[in-house]
C-alpha cells in the first residue's frame, strides 16, 4: 500500500504537505480541542473539587442508574442480536428483507422521535397508559421506560455485526455438526459461537457505549427527576444548566473515558477481524446484503 515507486496521484510533496496540514489542523480543532476542554474544565478547580463532584449522591445515583440500565439492556440486546442473526442467516423464509429493515430501523430514527413514540405507548395519553395506571404499573418516568427507550436506540448494534458475518460463514459447519448428532445448543456453543465471538463482543462494546451515552430518547421518557431517574447524560445537562460547569464536566469526563476505552476496545477487536463486514463505523443504517436464496 505504501510502496510509492511510481508516484501516485496526489503524491507531490507540496500537495502532500498541504493536505496533511489541513487534516491535522481541522482534526485538532474539531476533535482534539473538544476532548481536551472536557478534562481541562473538569479539573479546572483541582482534584478535590473533581472528586467531591463525583462523590455527590446525585452524581453517584446517575452513574448507578446508567450502569443498571446497561446491565439490563445490553444482555437482552445481545440475546436478541444472536437470535436475529441465527434466524436470518440459518433459515430461508419470506419477509426476510422486511425483518432486516425493521431491525435496522432505529438507526435511522431520531432519538427524540423514539422518545415521543414511547410516550404514546406507555404515557397517560398513550395506548396502554390508562391501563397501566389502573394497574399501578409505572413504566414511564421510571427505570422500565429508560431501559425500553435505550433498547430501541441500540436495537441493531449486535445484530448488524453478526448478520453479515454469519451470512459469509454459511451453514455448512452447523449442518455438519447437527448431522453428526450434536444438539442445537451444543452446535451453537461449540461451532457457531467461537466463530462469532469477536464480532459479538464488538457489537456489545458499541451497544454499551451508545446506551450509556444516550440522551435524546431517555430525556423524553425519564422525566428528569433528580436523584431518581437522571441517567449520567441527563445529569450532565442538569448540572450544566445549573451553572455548575465543573460538576457537569467532571460527570462528562467519566463518559469521555468510557468513549476512549470504547475506541481502544474497537481498535483491538478490529485486529481480531471484527467489524470488517460493513463500511461505516458505529452507527448508521447499513444495508445488509440479502443474497441468501441459495
Amino acid at each position: 500500500m505504501t510502496s510509492r515507486k511510481p508516484p501516485r496521484v496526489g503524491d507531490s510533496p507540496t500537495f502532500r504537505r498541504f493536505l496533511i496540514a489541513f487534516v491535522l489542523i481541522v482534526g485538532t480543532l474539531l476533535i482534539a480541542a473538544p476532548l481536551a476542554v472536557i478534562f481541562a474544565q473538569a479539573f479546572s478547580k483541582g482534584w478535590p473539587t473533581f472528586a467531591s463532584t463525583i462523590a455527590h449522591p446525585d452524581t453517584r445515583h446517575a452513574i448507578f442508574l446508567t450502569v443498571v440500565t446497561a446491565l439490563i439492556a445490553v444482555p437482552i440486546n445481545t440475546v436478541f442480536g444472536i437470535a436475529a442473526a441465527w434466524a436470518l442467516t440459518k433459515f430461508d423464509f419470506r419477509g426476510k428483507r422486511l425483518l432486516t429493515i425493521l431491525i435496522e430501523l432505529p438507526f435511522s430514527i431520531s432519538p427524540i422521535v423514539a422518545g415521543v413514540a414511547y410516550l404514546f405507548v406507555y404515557g397517560l395519553q398513550g395506548l396502554f397508559g390508562p391501563l397501566l395506571q389502573s394497574a399501578d404499573i409505572k413504566i414511564l418516568f421510571a427505570l422500565p421506560g429508560i431501559v425500553l427507550a435505550s433498547m430501541f436506540v441500540t436495537a441493531p448494534f449486535v445484530a448488524r455485526e453478526l448478520i453479515p458475518l454469519m451470512q459469509a460463514q454459511g451453514r455448512d459447519l452447523e449442518e455438519a455438526a447437527t448431522s453428526l448428532g450434536a444438539s442445537g445448543w451444543r452446535t451453537f456453543f461449540y461451532v457457531t459461537l467461537p466463530n462469532i465471538r469477536w464480532a459479538m463482543l464488538y457489537g456489545i462494546v458499541l451497544c454499551n457505549a451508545r446506551l450509556m451515552g444516550e440522551f435524546g430518547a431517555v430525556s423524553v421518557v425519564s422525566g428528569n427527576i433528580r436523584g431518581q431517574t437522571n441517567t449520567l447524560p441527563l445529569h450532565i445537562e442538569l448540572l450544566y444548566h445549573d451553572y455548575q460547569t465543573v460538576g457537569a464536566f467532571a460527570a462528562a469526563s467519566i463518559l469521555t473515558v468510557l468513549a476512549l476505552v470504547t475506541i481502544v476496545a474497537k481498535v483491538l477487536l478490529e485486529r481480531q477481524g471484527a467489524g470488517r463486514h460493513h463500511g461505516s463505523a458505529l452507527a448508521g443504517p447499513v444495508a445488509v446484503s440479502q443474497d441468501t436464496t441459495r
Binding site: 482534526g27 447524560p233 463518559l255
Partner: peptide
C-alpha cells in the same frame, strides 16, 4: 482511531464541550 470519537462520545458531552 479518533475519527470514531464523535460516535463514541455521548452527544450531551459533545454538546457542552463544543
Amino acid at each position: 482511531a479518533m475519527v470514531d470519537l464523535p460516535f463514541a462520545l455521548p452527544t450531551a458531552v459533545a454538546g457542552i464541550a463544543l
